[in-house]
Simulated assay, not measured.
Amino acid sequence: MQSIDSLRELNSKLLAEISELMKVNAELKDKNAEIPDLKRKFAEIESEKVELKARIAEILRQAVEENQLSMATHHEKPLVDKKMDTSLPEELIPEVIAKQSVSAVNISVMDQCDQTTLEDKETNAFLDEVRKKKISDEIRQRNRKKKLQA
């Protein structure tokens, strides 16, 4: 009788283990069902990455062209030769963009400096004349002192 009871006990343990394994199996099936979704999302992200790199290259090409036009209008030597290939290796793109943005900032600052109003120009001219007159007066005064001492 004891062997039947121990077999029944073993059987219930095995049934509990089987039930647990079935739950784990169901969870794994759910996770496996997610894999195609994750693969699709990964492919979408990779596609967006390629599109963004293409847009960055296009923007960079346009910036180089604008730089050349700007330099030509200011009669300066362009930073990039027109015959130069503007396609760049991916690892250089961020570095070139950083340089272009610094260059763009410098150009905009220079443009702002060149766009002084007529009133500002007149004010600057007046201040220059006042400064020159003051310096002339100081020179005359020093010369007078020298004459008086001599």
Rank of each mutant, 00 (worst) to 15 (best):
D111T: 06
V96H: 01
L127E: 10
F126K: 10
K77M: 07
L69A: 12
I4W: 02
S101N: 08
K49W: 09
R40G: 05
Q100W: 05
L15G: 01
P94E: 02
I59G: 10
E76I: 03
I93A: 07
D37H: 12
K53C: 07
K13M: 03
V80W: 02
H75L: 12
R8N: 08
A26N: 08
K83T: 14
N67V: 01
R61I: 02
N106R: 09
E66R: 09
I59L: 11
K134R: 10
K41E: 12
V64D: 03
V50E: 11
E76K: 06
S70N: 06
D114N: 09
V105T: 14
L79K: 05
A98K: 10
A57S: 15
A150G: 12
S47L: 14
D111Y: 09
E76N: 02
R40S: 12
A104V: 03
A16R: 03
A104P: 02
E34G: 00
I35C: 00
E20Y: 04
S47K: 12
I45V: 13
I135F: 06
P36K: 03
M110R: 11
A54G: 09
A57D: 05
S6R: 11
V64K: 05
Q115S: 15
K145G: 01
N143L: 01
E129A: 09
A16I: 00
D137V: 11
P94M: 01
Q62W: 04
A104I: 07
A98R: 15
K39D: 12
L7G: 00
P89S: 02
Q115A: 15
I135K: 14
S136I: 01
T123Q: 10
Q141Y: 03
L38M: 09
E27A: 09
R142I: 05
A33Y: 01
I107H: 07
P94I: 01
I59T: 08
D85G: 05
S87K: 08
